[in-house]
C-alpha cells in the first residue's frame, strides 16, 4: 500500500464537476438546482446525474419543493459530504506540495 496522496483521493469526490457541486454547496450551505446548473454550465440532465451519484454516496441530500408555482430542488451537504470535501482539498494540497518539492 502506497502513502502517495493520490491514493487517498476519492473517485466520487475527485471528479471536477462533483467537486464543484460540493464546493458550491459547502459555501452556500443550501443551493438551488438552477444556481448549480448556471454556475457549473451544465445541462439539467448532466447535473442531475452527478447529483444522483453524490446522493447515492450520502454526500448530499436533495429536497424538492415549490417557490410559488415553480418547482425547486434544493441541495445541502451532509456531514459525510463536508468531511469528504475537506479531505479531498487536503489531499489535493498535499499533492501540490509534493509536486513542488519534486
Amino acid at each position: 500500500m502506497t502513502n502517495h496522496p493520490a491514493s487517498a483521493l476519492d473517485d466520487v469526490v475527485h471528479q471536477r464537476v462533483r467537486l464543484g457541486i460540493l464546493a458550491i454547496t459547502a459555501e452556500a450551505r443550501r443551493v438551488e438546482f438552477s444556481f448549480l446548473r448556471t454556475t457549473l454550465d451544465l445541462t439539467a440532465g448532466n447535473l442531475a446525474q452527478h447529483l444522483t451519484v453524490l446522493e447515492n454516496a450520502d454526500l448530499i441530500c436533495t429536497e424538492k419543493g415549490y417557490e410559488g408555482k415553480r418547482p425547486r430542488t434544493w441541495v445541502t451537504l451532509t456531514p459525510t459530504g463536508q468531511a469528504a470535501l475537506r479531505a479531498e482539498i487536503s489531499h489535493l494540497k498535499k499533492l501540490i506540495r509534493q509536486v513542488e518539492r519534486a
Partner: peptide, 25 residues
C-alpha cells in the same frame, strides 16, 4: 469560467476551481 470535466485536471487546477466557485457563491 468553470470548465466541465477535463480528463487531465491537475491538483492545482482543481484547487483553483474550488476557490473560484467559492468566490462566486
Amino acid at each position: 469560467a468553470f470548465t466541465p470535466a477535463s480528463p487531465a485536471d491537475s491538483p492545482r487546477e482543481l484547487v483553483a476551481t474550488v476557490r473560484n466557485l467559492t468566490r462566486q457563491v
